[in-house]
Nucleic acid binder design. Structure first.
Lengths: 249, 249
DNA sequence: AAATTTACCGCAATAAACCGCACATATCAA
DNA sequence: TTGATATGTGCGGTTTATTGCGGTAAATTT
């Protein structure tokens, strides 16, 4: 039996029984209780359950159920979001740009992570309001209602006062020569500033965005320090991107 | 049975019965009453119940958690919110302070209203993102996660640049001599500024807030131009408030 | 005030969690 | 293939958590 399989079974059992016991699981799944404990630790780390003495119970907060629904629909985004988690550390200042992928990133953030997050996205802010340890700042300004995010001079002004460790930037198009592009000028200006004030720029890219370009250039490609892609992108497609020394995950 | 399960059951029983006895619980849950006592101590430690001699009773919900407050006196809030609509006109600049009553106000706003709204509330911002004609500004800053609203110097700074026509202020206590009060200093400073930059200040008051006071004074009572109350408040109760020429709806 | 009930404290037994190590398996590059 | 590296797993020993019990102090009732 694959490890992943086991994890899925544990989650399934938790959903139906509302509780699981370590020793019981060990017996059913035919592995040592130490292994079960390690599994539970990992699942708890990902915020998928709450570990208690003797086993585990479902996570209390509701936004995680929503996550399960999206689990099926946005498979690729979830993979990207999970990969992104490894770049977070306690004490960091993180900028979470708007975008649906970054929403998944916010939902997945480990409950134990003690970091400061700045965001322009109202949806992300609401998600992180449920997080027990994140210190949250909303970058205020005019609201672009369709995307539920802020932009404008006020956002820029606030950003000038920040030095961020990590920026997770939302991207509409990326191209090795043209760089990172998006279709809206107002958002473009904000993203530019975000890149400027961040030590490490991480872009989450799904396959369809690769080698495309929009009207407004946020930054040249080599400003991107890390590019996180999903598994459907082939090595061949990435050849042009690897030349610049960008880390690709 | 997992310890955690037991704690959940105790809380559940407390919710339905409004009280629990230690010995009774010990019998039902099949553990010693010492264990129950330890459970109750821990739950009390976490502020989830109040321990009394012989058992425990529920604890009053935190006044901050937005999710919980929404359900309290919901009917009355709807009445207040409806009354507030008559003060809105096309072309106005409106400040919507945070609070569950103002959330209802936002939900009810006529789709035809062409106004500009400033808010510190993430929940209200999300509601107004659905509105077809409102121009929306999020007053950004540090986020108070329980109440889902922003505060701090950035909010104040933005407010200084605004002249608003109408302010709908969220109130925790109101008293004819002491004035408008709330329990948090950070929010108080923001509200102070809101009052300062607004031509007309409207307070939505439910019965239980009348003649009560909290730690921090936002403004004297006569800064309130309009007070909107629900129908359970008698004329007699309002005598002290009418002396200052405040319009009462 | 005495009797009774409840709460608290320390102890010991048991169960569970954790840690480090060894071994197996999988992955990947040369 | 082969060797190097990483990851997952089981096992023994140690540490920690939970629980029941006896004794005692405090609160409540009679």
């Amino acid at each position: 039996m694959l490890r992943e399989e086991r994890l899925q079974i544990i989650l399934k059992m938790l959903e139906t029984n509302q509780r699981v016991s370590s020793v019981q699981l060990a017996e059913i799944l035919n592995v040592s209780d130490d292994t079960i404990r390690r599994d539970l630790n990992e699942l708890a780390e990902d915020g998928l359950l709450k570990k208690v003495h003797g086993g585990a119970v479902p996570k209390a907060a509701s936004p995680y159920k929503l996550k399960e629904r999206i689990h099926i629909a946005h498979e690729e985004k979830l993979i990207l979001a999970k990969k992104a988690q490894s770049f977070f550390e306690d004490g960091q200042v993180i900028i979470l740009d708007n975008g649906s992928t970054n929403m998944e990133v916010a939902k997945m953030m480990s409950p134990n992570l003690k970091a400061t997050v700045f965001t322009t996205s109202i949806a992300i802010a609401q998600i992180l309001c449920e997080h027990p340890n994140i210190e949250l700042f909303m970058l205020g300004g005019r609201v672009f209602k369709d995307a539920q995010n802020t932009y404008g001079t006020e956002v820029i002004e606030l950003l000038t006062k920040i030095r961020a460790d990590v920026l997770l930037i939302g991207v509409c198009g990326i191209h090795p020569e043209i760089g990172v592009t998006i279709p809206d000028w107002g958002e473009c200006v904000v993203k530019k500033k975000m890149v400027e004030v961040s030590a490490k720029v991480i872009a989450l890219i799904t396959a369809e965005k690769l080698n495309t370009a929009d009207s407004f250039v946020v930054c040249p490609y080599n400003d991107i320090d890390v590019m996180i892609t999903d598994d459907v992108i082939t090595e061949e497609q990435l050849v042009d991107y690897k030349r610049f020394g960008t880390e690709i995950q």
